[in-house]
Computed example of a mutant assay.
Amino acid sequence: MISQNLALYNWNNGVIMIAIFALVCITLVGILVNFMMSGKKKEDTDEDQ
Rank of each mutant, 00 (worst) to 15 (best):
I16A: 08
K40I: 05
G39C: 05
I20N: 01
A22T: 05
N13V: 02
Y9S: 04
V15P: 01
M37H: 10
V33K: 05
G39I: 06
Q49M: 13
Y9Q: 07
A7M: 10
V29C: 11
C25H: 06
W11I: 08
T27D: 02
I26N: 03
A19S: 07
W11A: 10
I2A: 15
K40Y: 02
M1T: 14
M17P: 00
N5A: 13
N10A: 06
V24H: 02
V24D: 00
I26D: 00
A19Y: 01
L32N: 12
A22N: 05
F35H: 10
V24P: 00
M17S: 03
N34I: 12
A7W: 07
F35Y: 09
C25P: 03
V33A: 09
V33E: 05
A7N: 10
L28K: 11
T45Q: 13
I26T: 08
N13Q: 04
L28M: 14
I18H: 00
N34R: 12
E47G: 15
N13D: 06
T27K: 06
T27S: 08
D44C: 05
F35L: 12
S3V: 09
I31N: 01
L8E: 12
T45I: 11
E47Y: 15
E47A: 15
K42R: 09
L28S: 13
M1P: 09
M17W: 01
I18E: 04
I16C: 03
D48F: 13
L28F: 14
M36Y: 12
E43W: 06
N5G: 13
K41P: 01
G30L: 07
G30I: 06
T27F: 10
W11F: 04
K42H: 08
D46V: 14
D48P: 06
I26S: 03
E43N: 08
T27V: 15
C25V: 13
N10M: 06
I2K: 15
I2V: 15
M36P: 00
I31W: 03
G30K: 01
T45H: 11
F35V: 12
E43Q: 08
T45L: 10
F21R: 05
N13T: 01
M17L: 07
L6P: 02
E47Q: 15
S3Y: 08
I20E: 00
G39M: 07
K42Y: 06
M37W: 10
N12H: 04
M1G: 15
M17H: 01
G30D: 04
L8H: 09
W11M: 06
L8M: 11
F35N: 11
G14K: 02
A19D: 01
C25L: 13
D48L: 13
I2E: 15
A19M: 03
K42N: 07
A19H: 02
S3E: 14
F35W: 08
M17K: 02
I16T: 09
Q49N: 15
K40N: 05
M37R: 12
I31S: 01
I20V: 07
M1D: 14
D48I: 15
I2C: 12
F35R: 11
L23A: 13
L32S: 14
N12I: 04
M17E: 04
T27M: 10
N12M: 03
Q49W: 14
M17Q: 00
C25W: 08
Q4W: 09
V29N: 10
